[in-house]
């Protein structure tokens, strides 16, 4: 083809419209496409969520033990569990653990996020460091905390006794009820801070700087800017963080299992560790499942409180008039 005919072809060529094949038509068929796209998600939900949860419910209604398929016993497991003082103690412990650790996490996490939102030297480096407690495997950090809480080798005691000379004896952190509970709260707070800090930092960065400038001109002090600008604008994202964080803490298992294993004398036993204790070492699968199922109403209530209390503010609702 010489240059002129090539040019002529280039000028006259038009995008060809080919008839659709059956595959194209099939993929353009909306019901098929919806089914196709949803299938993997539904499959995953059924296999990994519905079946285990359903099995848990079923076990809670039977007298199964390890190695023996049980019979349906109705709500007998729940009735006996509710009467059990260890279970009652575990409910108290779980609520205390969740409440205290959540207050700690949110107080410190928010504070850290506010600090990181300023122009600091080595900002990204600091942010990476903040994330560390969250990246370390839970059991590993639990062992480290357990070591720090050891009656003989605790570095905290060492510093207080041998370096600062503030005490004469080592502290028995995990030896009695309240010190052990607070020790767990501290460890859980430490682990939870990064989650809160990173989420609230993301939230802080969505607040336009001009709002702070406007507030500055309106005469707001730094506390007033925090109180009237930062907090209300952060609430939606804080409520998401709060929901997730309380759920994670309420259903925590690893830290408690690895640091105190519910001891001394069940005084740090939380619902998750108790369920495990009863179901696996105690081999009472039905009773253990009942304890685990008993957590669900608490979790639903927490989610509902957070969601309805904080998530959607009035100023975000209503028809936007863009």
């Amino acid at each position: 083809m010489d240059a002129t005919t090539a040019e002529a072809a280039a000028v006259t060529w038009r995008l060809a419209r080919r008839p659709d094949g059956w595959i194209t038509r099939l993929f353009d068929y909306k019901p098929f496409l919806i089914g196709l796209c949803l299938a993997p998600a539904i499959g995953l939900l059924v296999v990994f969520l519905t079946y285990p949860l359903g099995l848990g419910f079923w076990l809670a209604l039977t007298n199964s033990t390890i190695g023996q398929r049980g019979h349906f016993v109705g709500l007998a497991n729940f009735i006996s569990v509710l009467d059990d003082p260890v279970f009652q103690l575990s409910v108290f412990n779980t609520i205390f653990y969740t409440a205290a650790a959540t207050v700690g996490k949110f107080g410190l996490g928010l504070w850290l996020a506010l600090l990181l939102n300023h122009h600091l030297p080595f900002k990204s480096f600091l942010r990476a460091i903040v994330l560390l407690p969250w990246i370390v495997p839970t059991v590993l950090s639990a062992i480290v905390w357990w070591w720090m809480y050891s009656p003989q080798f605790s570095i905290i005691s060492y510093i207080l006794v041998n370096v600062l000379h503030l005490r004469s004896t080592y502290i028995n952190f995990l030896g009695s009820a309240w010190p052990a509970r607070w020790s767990l709260v501290v460890a859980n707070t430490w682990r939870g801070i990064p989650f809160v800090a990173i989420i609230t930092l993301a939230g802080l960065q969505t607040i336009p700087p001009s709002l702070y400038e406007a507030a500055l001109l309106d005469g707001a002090s730094s506390w007033q800017r925090f109180r009237f600008i930062t907090v209300p604008l952060l609430l939606p994202i804080l409520s998401v963080a709060l929901t997730l964080s309380t759920l994670f803490t309420f259903s925590d298992f690893q830290l408690v299992y690895a640091i105190t294993d519910g001891g001394p004398f069940n005084t740090t036993q939380i619902m998750a560790t108790l369920a495990y204790q009863v179901a696996i070492p105690g081999s009472e699968l039905g009773q253990g499942a009942a304890i685990a199922i008993a957590m669900i109403p608490f979790l639903v209530a927490l989610t509902a409180i957070n969601y309805f209390g904080l998530a959607r503010r009035k100023w975000q609702q209503g028809p936007a008039n863009e």
Partner: peptide
Amino acid sequence: MVFQNYALYPHMTVRDNMSFSLRL
């Protein structure tokens, strides 16, 4: 000052936006 993007407080009504400085 009137800002380019107005910098209205999104969580306050028009009334509260206007009265914010006076309330402070």
